[in-house]
Structures are given as structure tokens and as C-alpha cells.
Amino acid sequence: MIRFDQVTKLYAGTTRPALNSVDLEILRGEFVFLVGASGSGKSSFLRLILKEENPTKGEIHVLGQNVGRLSSRKVPYFRRNLGVVFQDFRLLPQKSVFDNVAFTLQVIGKSKGFIQEAVPDVLKMVGLAGKASRFPHELSGGEQQRVAIARAIVNRPALLLADEPTGNLDPATSAGIMTLLERISQSGTTVIMATHDAGIVDQMKRRVIELVAGQIVRDERQGGYLTQAIPVQQGFGTGAEL
């Protein structure tokens, strides 16, 4: 599903790599937590999978494609197989919930009929069945994140990337979001979630990959959020945030 071969990412003008010789394999249907302090390389990791960045060294295979060799013309089509969710939701404020989700399908050229069918389905799945005509500012944070998740999965991607999706939410709301992500994972979608939330990681008992200064220091199944101290990072503001 995803394979990193000796991947190093060095941003221009810095000496310390954001990722340093990372070797990794993630299988179909896995639910993976990506943990580590700010600046440890989590966001770079996700950006590389999305091909928002290219690796300085090494090879990345995602969904059977060598991402490094993907021509920029093909990148849009590659991304149609991926869903992404962010901490700050990134909804379009002047569009209703329905239109926010439909927008994704419109811009990749899906038919009106398909959109009319798929959007209500996915809204129902994320628990927003009655709120299709609301606007983002009328929703709570948790509901906005549900819209963002609906948008990410409406095209039934094989892979869902989530960059601190619960970072702006209170614990109860976060739990709801996690239940939703778990449900998505059970339907066969691979989920990779970068997070700082120890409680969630401990509770879920899924695979945990911990990054420190761009290197994998821990990769265990059914792990917890062991990191006690938050290591001080050099090179503050490396531009590695997504």
C-alpha cells in the first residue's frame, strides 16, 4: 500500500533533514498513528505521500505507484485515490455542507446523478444527515470536521490521511471523530493519522509509528503514546508544517 525506501527529505536551506532514511511499509486496511513532537517530521511524511513534496533521496511507493516518478500531469489523478483531513477543516465558508462535499466530485468531473446519490449517503454515514443545507459557520467544530471527513471519503479513496484531525476539538467530540475514522477503517480504507493526543492513541491500541527528529524510533502494533518528554527540536520553523 505504502512503502518508504530509505527516504530522506531535506528542505532547501536547512542542514537537518525533516525525514532521515525512513524505511517503512503500511499494508492495506491498516490504521496507523503517527506520533512525535512538532517538527519531528509527521507533516513531511504526509506531504510526501500526497506528493506535495518530493523526497530528496529514496523511493516512495503509494497505491502501486512510484510517487517520485509521477509526472506532474498525473498527480491530480493520483490524488483522486487519496482523502485528506486537516486540523483546521479547510471548508469553503460560502458553500453549504452539501456543496462542500459535492465540490470534490464536481471538480473531478463526476456526473450530477452520481453527486446527488453519493453526497447524501456520505453525509448520513458521518452523522450529518439533516444538516446538508447548513453553512460551515453554523456548525460546531466537531460537525465541521465531519464535513471535512465526508469530503475526504466521498470518492471512496483507498487511503485516508489525517493531520491532527482532533487537534482543535474537545475530548468528547474527538472520541466521536475517532469512532467515525475507525468505522471508515473497518470498511477497508487505510487510515494514517498524525496526532498529539495520547489518550486516543492509548485507547485505540493500533499500530503506532513514532518519529523523533526525522527518524522512526518506534513502530509497534497495538502501541500506546509512550513519549513522555517533548524533545526540544533544533531548527524551529523548518517549514515542515502542512
Binding site: S72, R79, V107
Partner: peptide, 17 residues
């Protein structure tokens, strides 16, 4: 730019953008 960012993220083709 918000729309453009989302379009690129969800895989709208360059021509479409």
C-alpha cells in the same frame, strides 16, 4: 486560494483549475 488548494488536494486536473 482556498478553493484552489482544495481543488489540488482532491485531484482536480490542472486544465480544470
Amino acid at each position: 486560494r482556498r478553493e484552489l488548494g482544495i481543488m489540488r488536494l482532491v485531484g482536480a486536473s490542472n486544465r480544470f483549475i
